[in-house]
């Protein structure tokens, strides 16, 4: 898991395509447009066009396609539940139910894979309440350390027999393991706060201010947005 996340995060910072150079705000707007169109699109043709556009964005961003497929394919499991529950005998309904979440998650992975997290969260933190905006930054920052630690801890527990025995014992041992992570998180938050103070923390994490710096690469984002709108205009009523 941490490998997938870390590779997406690395691609966001290390990528050198025009999509990476475009401003976070325009990419956020394009991703939101794709998600909303995918959620509301009544026509299967439009959904297929949006899905293809999302893949075009991903592949032209040079994100590893296997990684993207693995990350953006996650909603399939839960979507199957809805497909089975709303099965009407036709192929259209399951395909619509499948393409909608897949297009939305692909758009989200493209956004995260081309935008470093400080740029991505900066505009969101300006509209969210202060503690929630700060929480986004701090949670994401702590995520890699804690997931890595949790995976190592779990591996050590398995090696020492913590994953064997009756389920109740196994779960209680897992609980004790997670408690060590709670303590680690508490101590980490103390250190982080001290570091923030030393670096001149003024009471709010604002992220970087580059998220709205426009460049020529934003024209590509606008072009992609126009393509999505045109597809919606032409294919909205198509079958």
């Amino acid at each position: 898991m941490i490998n997938t996340l870390a590779r997406i995060d690395y691609a966001a910072s290390a990528g050198r395509t025009p999509w990476h150079a475009a401003s976070a705000l325009s990419k956020l707007a394009l991703a939101a447009l794709l998600v909303l169109l995918a959620v509301f699109a009544p026509s299967l043709s439009l959904l297929a066009a949006l899905y293809a556009l999302a893949w075009l964005l991903v592949l032209s961003s040079r994100l590893p396609w296997r990684l993207t497929l693995a990350a953006a394919g996650y909603p399939v499991a839960f979507t199957l539940l809805f497909i089975v529950g709303r099965w009407d005998g036709s192929a259209g309904t399951p395909l619509r139910l499948l393409l909608r979440p897949l297009t939305a998650s692909l758009a989200a992975v493209w956004l995260v894979g081309t935008t470093p997290y400080p740029d991505l969260f900066a505009p969101l933190s300006r509209v969210l309440p202060r503690s929630v905006g700060d929480g986004l930054f701090l949670t994401y920052r702590a995520l890699f350390a804690l997931i890595g630690r949790a995976e190592r801890l779990w591996r050590a527990l398995r090696l020492r027999g913590g994953a064997s025995g009756p389920p109740r014992r196994r779960l209680m041992v897992a609980g004790e393991g997670f408690a060590t992570l709670v303590l680690y998180g508490f101590e980490r938050s103390q250190r982080l706060y001290a570091t923030m103070l030393l670096r001149g923390h003024s009471g709010r994490i604002c992220g970087c201010r580059h998220y709205a710096e426009w460049s020529r690469a934003d024209l590509l984002v606008i072009l992609a947005g126009l393509a999505a709108v045109a597809a919606a205009a032409f294919l909205w009523r198509a079958p």
Partner: peptide
């Protein structure tokens, strides 16, 4: 407390 909240969110 907000930093602690972030750490537990990551947990």
């Amino acid at each position: 407390q907000v930093a602690y909240q972030g750490a537990l969110g990551a947990l």
